[in-house]
C-alpha cells in the first residue's frame, strides 16, 4: 500500500519534471503536420524543426515593418492573409517610397511542397527567400546587416530569440529560419476539395463540380496536377510578352529555351488571389479561361501542350468554362484566411 502511494507520487513528480524538460515551445503546439491527402513535403525540416516559439517569432517578424529601410513595409504588406497572402487588387506591388515592382505577389501557401521560389524559380531554398524582398530596393530596400542590428537593439527581440533558440544571439541563420517556420505553417488544405478527398464530413462534389474536375484533369492537369494543382515546372503559356519585357526563367538559366517561362501557379484559393499571371494582367478567372481558349500567342518557347494538332490553346466551350470554374471554387479554403494562428497578433 505504502509502496503504491510512493510510486504514484514519484510518477506525478516525474511527469511534472518531464513537462519542464520539454524542448522550446513544444507544449500545445503540433508543429508542422502534413495533410493526409498531400504528398511528402520538399522542405528540409531536418535542419529547421518548426517549434511554437520559432513559429511565433517568425510570425512577429513577418508582420514587422522594422524589416524595411524606412520601417513602413512588412512582409505582410504585400502578402495579406485575407487575400491568401497575396496583394489583392494590385497587378504588381508597391514597396518603400511607393516604388512599383514588376511582378505580382504570389500567395504564401503550402511552401513546404515548393521546389523553388519566385515566379522564375531563382531561389531554391525557402530559408534564403526572404533575403530577396528585404534587400530589393523597390520592395523593402534594407540591408540584412541593418535588419539584424535593428533586431539586436530592439526591446523585445533578443528575449524572443532566446525563447526560440536558447540564446539571445541574433544571426542570419536563426533570423531566416524563423521566417521560414512561419511561412511553412501557412498550409492551405481545408478546401471543399480536400474534404471530399479525405472523405470528411460526408462532403461530396455536385454534378457540375464533378464534371469540372474531370475537365480540369483532362485539359489543365498536365501542369496543374492534384493535389497541389501545380507541377512546379516553368512554362510559357502564351500570354505574350508583358509591359516589363520580363524574360522569366531565362533570367535564371540564361537558356534561350527558357525565355518567357514562369512557374506554374497553384489553382488553390483563386477566389482570393486575383489578379492572375506573373504580372497580374488578368483580373478574372473568365479572362484566364478565355485566354487559354482563344487568346494564346504563338511564341518560340510556347509550351507544346498549347500547340497541339496545329491549333493554339485549349478548346473550351462556354459550358465547359462554367463547369471548370465551378470546380475551381471547391479549391477555395476560407479557413486558411481566417486562421488566427497566422494573423498579426
Amino acid at each position: 500500500m505504502n509502496r503504491k502511494i510512493w510510486l504514484i507520487i514519484f510518477l506525478i513528480l516525474a511527469g511534472i519534471y518531464a513537462c519542464k524538460k520539454e524542448p522550446f515551445g513544444a507544449e500545445f503546439f503540433a508543429g508542422f503536420q502534413k495533410p493526409s491527402n498531400f504528398p511528402e513535403p520538399a522542405y528540409h525540416f531536418s535542419t529547421n524543426t518548426v517549434t511554437k516559439n520559432g513559429f511565433e517569432l517568425g510570425r512577429k517578424l513577418f508582420y514587422d515593418p522594422i524589416l524595411s529601410a524606412d520601417n513602413t513595409i512588412s512582409c505582410g504588406s504585400c502578402h495579406i492573409q485575407t487575400s491568401a497572402f497575396t496583394h489583392h487588387g494590385h497587378t504588381v506591388s508597391h514597396g518603400i517610397f511607393d516604388q512599383l515592382g514588376t511582378r505580382n505577389a504570389p500567395p504564401i501557401m503550402n511552401m513546404a511542397w515548393n521546389t523553388s521560389f519566385m515566379w522564375d524559380g531563382g531561389i531554391v531554398d525557402l530559408d534564403l527567400q526572404s533575403v530577396a524582398p528585404i534587400t530589393n530596393h523597390v520592395e523593402m530596400g534594407e540591408t540584412m546587416d541593418n535588419v539584424l542590428n535593428k533586431l539586436r537593439n530592439s526591446q523585445e527581440y533578443p528575449a524572443l530569440f532566446r525563447k526560440a533558440y536558447g540564446s539571445e544571439e541574433i544571426n542570419t541563420s536563426n533570423f531566416l529560419k524563423s521566417i521560414s517556420q512561419f511561412t511553412l505553417m501557412c498550409i492551405s488544405s481545408n478546401s471543399k476539395y480536400d474534404s471530399v478527398m479525405r472523405q470528411q464530413d460526408g462532403k461530396t462534389f455536385t454534378l457540375e463540380e464533378e464534371q469540372g474536375r474531370e475537365l480540369v484533369t483532362e485539359k489543365c492537369g498536365t501542369c496543374h496536377t492534384e493535389p497541389l494543382f501545380t507541377d512546379f515546372s516553368f512554362r510559357n503559356n502564351g500570354i505574350g510578352i508583358g509591359l516589363f519585357n520580363d524574360e522569366g526563367r531565362y533570367l535564371i538559366t540564361n537558356n534561350n529555351d527558357d525565355k518567357f517561362k514562369f512557374k506554374v501557379p497553384s489553382l488553390r484559393n483563386l477566389a482570393y488571389t486575383a489578379p492572375y499571371m506573373h504580372d497580374g494582367r488578368f483580373f478574372t478567372l473568365e479572362t484566364v479561361l478565355d485566354h487559354y481558349a482563344s487568346g494564346v500567342h504563338d511564341e518560340p518557347t510556347l509550351d507544346p501542350i498549347l500547340r497541339q494538332n496545329a491549333t493554339l490553346g485549349i478548346p473550351l466551350t462556354t459550358d465547359e468554362k462554367t463547369k471548370i470554374i465551378s470546380f475551381l471554387n471547391t479549391l477555395n479554403d476560407k479557413s486558411f484566411l481566417l486562421d488566427k494562428r497566422l494573423s498579426e497578433q
Binding site: I123, D125, D127, L128, M144, N171, T172
Partner: peptide
C-alpha cells in the same frame, strides 16, 4: 552554394561580408 543557411558563416554570411557578393534573386 547550395548548403543550409546555418553553414554560411564568416565571409559567406549573406548579412555580413557576403552581402555585397551574393545574388538574392538568383541564389
Amino acid at each position: 552554394n547550395t548548403m543550409d543557411v546555418s553553414q554560411r558563416t564568416g565571409v559567406l554570411d549573406v548579412s555580413g561580408a557576403a552581402a555585397d557578393m551574393y545574388w538574392t534573386w538568383n541564389s
